[in-house]
Design a protein around this nucleic acid. Structure first.
Lengths: 208, 208
DNA sequence: GTCTATAGCGGGATAGAC
DNA sequence: GTCTATCCCGCTATAGAC
């Protein structure tokens, strides 16, 4: 799209290496030379493909965020049952983070860097649509009598996403601190936790 | 304690300035000169009080984390009702972040920097005790029949804390994205959300 | 497209006067 | 305790050969 034609392997190698390093050490903590080394590419070559470090950073974010169309969350709205739709959104979010483990860290760094207000437009738009879908979905559940009505839909949507998002950032550490899990494959753990989130959230929302 | 006697005003000014900058831009993104400037202090003087940048960073974290004894969360265990105890823990956590808004960002940066596993021992210990209290408390609620038993206490504890923690990092942005709240005083918003978290979490945990 | 070489700047940290 | 001056290093980015 934005990059017409096929992205050369070199460019892709740079993007991958940069994504790993930016996620692990942040933009300021990562040097061009480190990126070049990890990508197996001459550092100067990076400036052939990207204007400067900031542009490379933007490209990394665009690549990763763009890989996961939010559209699917909106599709869930077509579902008849609000319960099923909510479950679908949660599981999808878990899948996204499981498939691209660098994303949670990059997002969290973005949140810490920009004052909350002015974040990357791309990321903001993605989040906005996801939240909007969830809110609509919860409100719909309230209207049809399946969800309790004494909960603010906006707050409930945040509660729902917060669980899965926070887990992806700190979950493994937290479970370790509690002496749980000697370590399973990360991906499975996320899906298991997503299962819990669905149950927990639906229990909180269910009308009595 | 660790710093015997009274900390001179200069040292404190450096710590405060450093805390703000580290929270906003991260350790790597902050320079000694910036810290000196914001503290109204000669940059070279920083090396009189701290060995190097890393030591200053550690001191910042120790100061902020140490300001909030986790002990109070454990005290909540003495309460008779698991419901009240859970509410107390959530509100306390909200108060901590409201009183020291830099803390969430610093914590999140720590989580992003260190691989989840090896985080600052001080912070890890604090989190461990908080989680342990919550877990015990939930398990107790299950034992006395007030909480449903088909929820993993560890997972529930994470769900509970995740809501308040994630809100403090991204809540204002998320609400803005949803077109909510033209901005109230941040502190009040946190307390309001904490109220929601208590209601939401108890609804999820309550036995039918 | 890829490499070498290097300019130019800004960072962390120290020496030593006051 | 505080300041000035400065060293040295490593980083970003460019020039230009291939």
């Amino acid at each position: 799209m934005t990059d017409s034609a096929a992205a050369p392997a070199t460019r892709q190698a740079i993007l991958s290496a940069a994504a790993e390093l930016f996620a692990a050490r942040g933009q300021a903590g990562t040097t061009i030379k480190q990126i070049g080394r990890r990508a197996g590419v001459n550092p100067a070559l990076i400036y052939y493909y990207f204007a400067d470090k900031a542009a490379l950073y933007d490209a990394v974010l665009a690549e990763l965020v763009g890989r996961f169309p939010v559209q699917l969350a909106e599709a869930a709205l077509a579902t008849d049952s609000p319960r099923d739709a909510l479950a679908a959104v949660v599981h999808r979010q878990a899948r996204v983070f499981a498939e691209e483990p660098l994303l949670p860290r990059l997002i969290v760094r973005e949140l810490a860097d920009h004052d909350g207000s002015r974040a990357t437009p791309l990321l903001g738009e993605h989040a906005r649509r996801l939240l909007a879908s969830l809110t609509v979905l919860i409100r719909r559940g309230q209207d049809d009598g399946s969800f309790r009505t004494d909960v603010e839909p906006h707050h409930a949507a945040i509660s729902c996403l917060a669980q899965i998002n926070w887990y992806c950032i700190s979950g493994p550490l937290m479970l370790m601190l509690m002496g749980d899990k000697p370590e399973g494959p990360h991906t499975l753990e996320i899906d298991r936790f997503a299962e819990h989130v669905v149950k927990f959230t639906l229990a909180a929302l269910e009308a009595r």
